[in-house]
Design a protein around this nucleic acid. Structure first.
Lengths: 343, 343
DNA sequence: ATAAAACGCTCAATCGATTTAGCCCTGTGT
DNA sequence: ACACAGGGCTAAATCGATTGAGCGTTTTAT
């Protein structure tokens, strides 16, 4: 079941494999191959539908034309959407994508990197977990392009594409305040990764700016590993105990659990408890009442990630490309104290 | 930045690369390598953290330990969730996954297959588009294991893992009828692929069984390529014109568009228009009113897909493994004519 | 005692493409 | 007439692992 190889073409054209390789790699001019021979080879290659064996090529050149995509959770709406854009864009450049989910677990992330490394992927797109500084540095050492996404590592100088988490959270919180909510809380993860920290900071900044009393009770942190039931129970418990009148959920899945929790308490979203969530979702758009959220420009995130990576793959730059894209606040019904008629 | 190769180990152990290869591939006994040498090699390999170069190995053996996953849309909730399970399971067997979305477009699917082919993936997981019969047959010819998912091709004898679309649709429709809805419609895709056809058939069978008048007006078909706006407009138009009192949406994204449409008409889901959707979604669970749906056993689908594929990769069987898993009807508020108090 | 088998390991070819070094030929300059 | 410079192409090494054939030594069988 062998495919067409460079030898087959060489044989048919009556030339050496070397010549075929030169021509097929566009080095005909540089290597002074005559036009006649070039054309003949091209024609035959076309006729035979020759496709270079990527393994052989990779073995020789060290380039596999493969990217590694390590996300937190490929089943999550945000990451799945980014993955799609990434795959699409990469494809345009002739790259394929290997993927894996970390579940925000350092061990899993480590395992994924390990595998991708000895699969010799050319570049990495990584949603880093904590304690990944060393591994990222290591990749830099071996000159493998890396683009971090969704978050970055403050102590590592690397390329990254993220959104302005601070501004997003600040705008969301300010919006809640301006809508007249008084006792506002933030529900976030236990993780102290930069994107979460920035969302916290944006939240707090809005608090300060408007002179709201800030204390540790306004923050509820929940571990990523906890399951759905655990999350909703914890959120429900917290909401019942703390008597807040609005909540900022720091990620999309927390927002989803949050909706469940608020409703299980018999409270009306918007009227009784305002809510904003970081990251959009079909669910937020269509929920009644619809959920105000900080929407990330997914298309652009994906495009830029690949963009940066391709630039690096072609000619490594000395300075890190660090893109901070602006999210948009999608104002919906969950932040209206007066209940709007359901559309 | 070369990695550790078999040669390095050979040198350190004072043996030939051949011997190292034998030992590392568990052929020590078979190839009569002494225990001392075996152990020494193993120890050195461990110390050096040797990982075989998959490219070289693949070039020689033709096995890449890579699977190709071709889905309709990786950003779709269902496929993203299956992808996650697949990646996880494949990983357990030492396989990595390359993925791509077809958008249900034959050309795109063809392109993906082409790429995966000359990337020499060992096995394929495919959500086939129409007119893929030839390509699947071709893969069979070259003895590449293929498992179809979500749907299969009636004219091709292949492995597949799907759900019982007929039963799912039958149960959903019967449920609508039993809830007292009279003018029931189905909104589906223009595609005549088997999963859609079976959902249609299940729908119609329930109609017949209960003596409901069936005519072509109860069916509305929409093309996959249409965008959100187009979909909602068309659905809205149809609902307004046809005066149905319940709708069965044949896929999750149609259901999502359907919710938008029904609401834009100012109708109450459940009370004014009952609805059921094939395939579950967070949105359906949390929507008010919550949406009754036919839920697919995603975990098991993913596990079985990999399961079947691994069996084939180890020893090709002569008969096709064709798994039809049972979906479950999740009864929720969207099929209650009396409006329940929103929880 | 001697051929045959068992041991324990290695040589070298192979997978398919890339790439360095270099061969032979023709034409130009002197 | 002779060196030298391209022009046009190829041989062979290389990437790292696998594998069929085989080589020298010792043990077993007859």
């Amino acid at each position: 079941m062998k495919g067409i190889s460079i030898k087959d073409i060489a044989k048919q054209a009556g030339v050496s494999p070397t010549t075929v390789s030169f021509v097929l790699n566009g080095k005909a001019k540089e290597k002074r191959i005559s036009d006649q021979v070039s054309k003949k080879i091209l024609k035959i290659a076309n006729k035979l539908k020759y496709k270079p064996n990527q393994l052989a090529r990779g073995l020789r050149t060290g380039k596999t034309k493969t990217l590694g995509l390590i996300v937190e959770d490929i089943a999550n709406n945000f990451f799945a959407n980014v993955a799609k854009v990434v795959e699409d864009e990469a494809d345009k450049h002739g790259y394929k994508v290997l993927f894996g989910s970390t579940e925000d677990n350092t061990e899993k992330a480590h395992g994924l990197l390990e595998v991708l490394k000895y699969r010799q992927v050319d570049g990495y797109i990584i949603t880093p977990t904590k304690n990944m500084e060393k591994e990222i540095e290591l990749l830099k050492m071996v000159r493998k392009p890396v683009v971090l996404m969704d978050r970055y590592l403050p102590n590592v100088d690397s390329h990254y594409v993220v959104v302005d988490n601070y501004q997003g959270a600040y705008a969301a919180t300010t919006h809640l305040i301006e809508q007249g909510y008084q006792k506002i809380a933030i529900i976030t993860t236990t993780s102290d990764q930069v994107q979460m920290k920035q969302r916290m900071d944006g939240f707090m900044a809005a608090f300060k700016k408007h002179g709201l009393p800030y204390n540790k009770n306004v923050v509820k942190r929940l571990p990523f590993e906890m399951d759905r039931v655990g999350h909703t129970q914890e959120i429900t418990k917290y909401l019942k105990a703390s008597k807040v009148d609005a909540v900022f959920f720091a990620t999309n899945y927390l927002g989803i659990y949050g909706i469940e929790s608020i409703r299980s308490l018999g409270l009306r979203i918007g009227a009784d408890v305002g809510m904003v969530c970081f990251d959009d979702h079909d669910l937020f758009r269509l929920h009644s009442p619809s959920i105000t959220c900080v929407s990330q420009p997914i298309e652009e995130i994906g495009r830029q990630i690949v963009n940066v990576l391709m630039k690096e793959l072609n000619h490594a730059s000395s300075t890190s490309q660090q893109l901070v894209l602006q999210p948009t606040l999608e104002v919906r019904q969950s932040t209206m104290k007066e209940v709007e008629p359901v559309a």
